[in-house]
Structures are given as C-alpha cells and as structure tokens.
Design a protein around this nucleic acid. Structure first.
Lengths: 193, 193
DNA sequence: CAAATAAAAGTGAATGTTCATTCTTTTTTA
DNA sequence: TAAAAAAGAATGAACATTCACTTTTATTTG
C-alpha cells in the first residue's frame, strides 16, 4: 500500500515535470500527450489514470506549480516583521524562485498570459497570495505604502521580476546579485509612500 | 491596377485582424486556419496566397502589430523635449495604446510570453524601440534617471502596463483616469534618480 | 474599342498526417 | 488468484496544406 502510493506520486510528479518542460519549449497545444508520456517514461494511456484529459493535466500542473511558488515566497515570513522588512523578505524569496526555479516560473508566466488555463483553475491559483495583500494593507494603514490598488502594487513591485526572468531566459541579459539589488530598490521606490 | 492592390491589402489586413482576435481567444495552436479564413471571409486556400504557412502568418502578424505599437508610442515625441517630459509623453501614449487597442496589446503580450513567434521575428520587433533607449541614455547622462540597465528600466517603467492591461481584460479591475495617474507616478518613482 | 485570351486571384473539396483518447492485453501488486 | 496499474496498438476526429477548377482582372489584337 505504502509502496504503491509512493510510486503513484512519483509518476504524477514525473508527468507534471514533463508537462512543464515541454509546454515551456513548444506551448501547450503544440505538445502532444505522446511526448509528455515519453519524457515521463510512461505509456500515453497511463496519463489517463492520473488525469482526466489533456486540459485537466495542464490545469492541475498550473495549480501545483502556483502552490509551490507561493509556499516558497512566504517561507520564513512572519507577521511580526515590520512592513518594509516583510516586503523585502517576500520580494527576495520571489526573486530567488524566479531565478532558481526558472522552469516553473516560465510556465506560470506562460499560463498567466495565454488562454490555456481555464478560469476556475486561475482563480484557485490566486488564493494563496493573501499574506502579501495583508502585508500591503498593513503598510497602507501605517502610511508606509502608497494608498493605491493592490493590482497597481503588484504590477510595479512584483510583476517586473517576470519580465526580467523572461529576458534572462532569452539570453538577453544576466540578473546577477547587483542587478537584483537594483531591482529591489526600484520595486520599493515605486510603492513606498 | 490600383483597385487590385487595394483589395489585396484589405484582405491581408482582414486576415491579420482575424488572427489577432482568434489567437487572443484560444491561443495560436488551438486556432485552425479554417476559422481564421472564415472570420476574414476568405477561403482557407486564399490564406496561402498571402502567407507561406501558419507560422509565417503569425510571425507577420506579430511584426505588423509591433510596428503599429511603436509608431503609436512615439507619435508626437520630439527629441527637443526634456527627459521627464519626453518620458511622460511616451509612457502615456503607451498606456493609451494598451487601453484603446487592447486586442493588439493582448496579442503582443501573448507572443512575448510564449514560444509561438520565432526568434528572428522577435528580434525584428525589438528594433523599433530605439527612441526610448536613446531617451534613457540622455536621462542617465543628465543624472535624472537611475544608472541601471535598460532591461530594468523597461521592466519597471513600461512593462507593468501589460500586467494592468491583462488584469483589466480579465475583468478584475478598471484602469481609469485616476489609476493611470497613479501608475505613471509609480513608474516615474521607480526609475528617477 | 470590343472581342479574345492570357494571367492572377480565389475557391471548395480532397489528402495525408498528427494526435487525443480508448480498447484489449499484459504485468504488477495485494 | 483477484484486482489494480500499466502498456502498446487501434480508432477516429481535426486540421494544415495542396489540388483541380472557376472567376475576376489585365493585356493583346483585329
């Protein structure tokens, strides 16, 4: 029983990882189930033991990766931190994720900019961002952060990292330690009061 | 002769517009040529009189839209403007484009975050951004703009507009006059020295 | 200038391939 | 030895592209 379940989780993960890699390379609709199966070392038919169909596979992959992303982002963050301290912590965790788990980050970026994921799954993925919104609320109340909409805050403080990650992935430039610092500085400038 | 050429351009434009609309809706690979043809009111076979194949159609569409975008962005900008004046002008033109030509803007966003456009066409599209890079160079030389990489400047000053446009398109929030002002303020804060 | 003809543009229906999904059989696990 | 998991091959639909034909436009010629 234990062994069986273990094996299943491995296979499921293999399928999810194969999906991420191949969708990054060619896009969702240009990636055949047969290739995903091959990369995950299973038969195409096996995919249907773990997922309902192709759409379900990509939805579940999205939700999985989004959960990893936010778990990573908030690791080590404590509500007891000051607003600026907390923001810097979360921001740098996110930067770290985009650099070190860039396959996952690219996948999310593709999903968030195309119609491949269905609406319920997108909603599902948004939920986990609450701690950041709470932090911003606190910052606004304390008069430290500009009193503007959360969308604007996200657009200026967090989203630029996606752009930089894509640029780096395309090989146009390198996000090193120094540039991360400069980016953080720009992010904070744009939202602090 | 004149009439013939005119007619051809109309048809080409119809095909490009159909491509934009349908790719926004379903993604590139999920959009059959037959649907593009139907929306453009031509036979599927006719597409191949204007474009080599499906990839060529989407590449050319991308280059076309990118050219419209940059032409719009730099309209009215003069090198004689001050750095801040020039930046505000260009920034607001871009904001305007993302709001009013949101179909085109969404299409670009999708292309820039997925592997549907081939590398040469992406390069082709970047070229037109030169005036903005020149302005930034001037700003750095005059000590008005932070001396950081152009990618960082773009990521913080310009790219957030894409995120906001997508959020608006998804119906999550409304980018009105007031929020545009706040967004401009955030953009300028993040890059000014 | 009009009739005749050549050339170009456009079409709807085939073609052949690719691929998601299912079916039947085999292997593994309990 | 029964049930679950997995496999490979089969199925049928969807689709990019091509083909053979028609219509429109341009050019030539009497």
């Amino acid at each position: 029983m234990m062994a069986k379940l273990q094996k299943s989780i491995d296979k499921r993960n293999a399928l999810i990882n194969a999906t991420i890699a191949l969708v990054n390379n060619a896009g969702f609709h240009a990636t055949p189930m047969s290739k995903i199966a091959k990369l995950a070392n299973v038969s195409p038919a096996t995919i249907y033991l773990y997922f309902e169909n192709k759409q379900d596979l990509v939805n579940k992959t999205y939700i999985d990766v989004k959960a990893q992303y936010t778990a990573y982002a908030f690791k080590g963050y404590e509500e007891s931190m000051s607003v600026e301290e907390g923001f810097e912590h979360i921001w740098k965790r996110i930067a770290d994720f985009k650099l070190n788990a860039s396959e996952s980050a690219m996948f999310l970026s593709q999903c968030d900019n195309t119609p491949i994921i269905d609406e319920p799954s997108l909603q599902e993925g948004i939920k986990h961002l609450q701690p950041l919104l709470d932090l911003w609320k606190r910052g606004k109340d304390e008069g430290i952060i500009k009193p503007i909409s959360d969308y604007l805050l996200y657009a200026y403080a967090i989203n630029p990292l996606s752009f930089l990650m894509m640029a780096q992935k395309r090989g146009s430039f390198k996000l090193d330690e120094k540039q991360i610092e400069e980016a953080y500085e720009a992010a904070w400038s744009s939202i602090k009061k």
